[in-house]
Design a protein around this nucleic acid. Structure first.
Lengths: 219, 219, 219, 219
DNA sequence: CATGAATGAGAGTTCATTCAT
DNA sequence: CATGAATGAACTCTCATTCAT
């Protein structure tokens, strides 16, 4: 993200504001259908000044993607590194993912819909990061099989089911909807784990173990 | 789709070909990013001749949506009307849905991504049809609860889980992929039904009942 | 008007029908705003067949102009050649002009509005004919001055007043309007001759002399 | 004519220049036959920059119509409100009308020829204003009958004669022609009033009364 | 820092005309 | 005689981007 050097103190603040507003507009109307002029109106800036902050329209898209993928990967990596039961880690990852989806619905909408408008290295960087996230999910699923919690499943298909169920949520979720991330994560995981687990696995026990973990880690 | 009267026998054939090609391009690049000129190149027609067939760019989008929603609703309605166990009907609906998704991956991609570019009555008609489909799914889920096969779930959340799991498939499925609709439907339904069913429900028995139904109905 | 040689008997009939329909459309919507396709629809012919009859769009314009200017010049020439009082001849010319205007309102509309879309020789021919008509009017006015009926006026300005008053009629006249050509001619000429005539000229007597002339010439 | 906010000082100047140039082109070639590209060439601007000023092609037409109808109605209303002899007021209105016609020949040409290309509210607004002008003329003619200056005429036909004679002037007048508005108005009114007036009305006296009025009102 | 003005390519669409069948 | 299909240029308009001030 090369930025022209030498900016005043308010630069980054204003810049982040503009990205917020862009995300909202892109989510509502689509990236392609949103014009720079419209962004300027919302930001209260003329086009020239806008470009001073954003560099280019595609840059905005990159920033929005990063705002999603950055926390997502950070969260996923640290969860993967925990020394805990893989099923519990899946549950944690599920909630982290839903947290981000619900907290930044507009960003997610752009992330899911308009990543195709990225070009060149922006695009390949994005795809690499997406693959890393998928790999972490798959790794946890395989670990759950290895410890005998899950049946032997096709790891890729299991991962895709996990992602299908979570990622499609942005299509219908609303900031003021009835369900929060914790609730949705519990429901989704109940469904997935019932389907994936070995005979006799104690599905209901997971939430208790989650509560224990929370207590432990906050201590 | 009113067409000016008086067209030769080859007209409709060519027209359908063009819609095929448009679906492929829209799926690959997005509706907004695909130009009429590009469509013309692929179709081997100048822009003028192209318009002779398509009427407008939005018209293409409408046709593609209809190719998805038409069969989908027809299938869903006839399945809903069957006098069978609601869980079996869900399994049938799941496969019908995946059949369409996998058979017309590019159409689905456009259907899921670019419906927002529809305007006016085209848009409202689409949304109405989508709601009808969702209502059928919800109806089957509620019926499964009523007969005691499923636990008492929030019907809307159950429907959304069903749709999340199925509809997101277009994001990664490939025409030459390893899994067909029958296989995916079995896996998805296994997951969902394990999660949704009442204690003691015979999940594994579903596939046997499906085979019996197939035999019966083909007889 | 070179036409491809060798036509069947119905050719000219159909051709004239098409010109009628074209005049109606051009009058209502303007020449530029009327498409060949629209003409075809009205004529019940596909575009190819239409071109067989019309040659080109501009050709239609030429034909319409001719339908106006042909009779107009023929009438004007024969009136100018009469051995009568020039004021009476002006009265006759006025009515001939209004006859044509009211009888073919749509043609006149096109004639007055769209002659600018003519190109090349079509255009110069039209302008030549228009000038000839103006010359005839001017000649009659000068003759009326020469015999002492009219004051000495600027001949060009007198002619222009004559034409202003008559030619602008197409702007508001309606086929089903309250006034016919005879009435309008009487009114217009009353106005003009009152303004143009020498002191003591018997304006009111003109209509009587007109009636006598009519009797004479029909005998 | 709502313009986006925030324009520099030169904006309106340039904008008016462009409208001038557009009026000249439209008058010469017709609105429909004049392309945006051609306007840009004349203005020395690329198409994009042109649109920055004009908004749309139809907007240009609206502006040109307003430049004619604005002064025309303002003038007509203030003349109608004068406490003077109706015949004198007709004479004043005649000259005001011809002033505008001769001062902005190209605008008038567009006004008379291309108003049909206006759509929607632009069109209805124009027609409403045209009718108001006609009503003022008719009102003055009826007033002249009421005071006994004119014979009892059909008010509508008298108005139409007035308008025919004046409005058709644009068809042949030239900016560098031999006659100015004052002269033409005197001639036209002499013709009309001779035709319309009651027996014994002092036509010749009108010009004297006009001179007196001018003296009075300039004092 | 911020502006308004300009660009130029490209968008979707229309249309008079041609021609093989 | 008549058709439907094809062309290609022109149409109005939009938009991301740049830059002198």
């Amino acid at each position: 993200m090369p930025r022209p050097p030498g900016h005043g103190p308010g630069y980054e603040v204003k810049r982040q504001e503009i990205i917020d507003q862009a995300a909202a507009l892109f989510a509502k109307q689509g990236y392609a259908a949103t014009g720079i002029a419209e962004l300027g109106e919302v930001a209260g800036l003329a086009k020239g000044a806008l470009y001073y902050y954003i560099g280019s329209k595609e840059n905005l898209l990159v920033e929005i993607q990063d705002r999603v993928l950055g926390p997502l990967l950070t969260g996923a990596r640290s969860i993967a590194a925990l020394d805990e039961d893989p099923v519990l880690k899946l549950r944690l990852l599920s909630q982290a993912l839903l947290d981000i989806i619900l907290a930044r619905l507009d960003h997610i909408w752009v992330y899911e819909h308009d990543y195709r408008h990225l070009t060149g290295s922006n695009r390949s960087r994005l795809l690499r990061q997406r693959r890393e996230f998928e790999k972490i999910v798959r790794g946890l699923l395989v670990a759950a099989m290895d410890v005998g919690a899950f049946r032997r499943l096709d790891p890729r298909l299991a991962m895709l089911q996990f992602l299908n169920l979570h990622n499609h949520t942005y299509q219908w979720a609303r900031a003021d909807g009835p369900w929060d991330a914790a609730f949705l994560s519990r429901e989704y995981c109940a469904t997935l784990i019932s389907g994936f687990c070995s005979d006799g696995y104690d599905v209901a026990g997971l939430e208790k173990r989650l509560a224990e973990y929370r207590e432990r880690s906050s201590a």
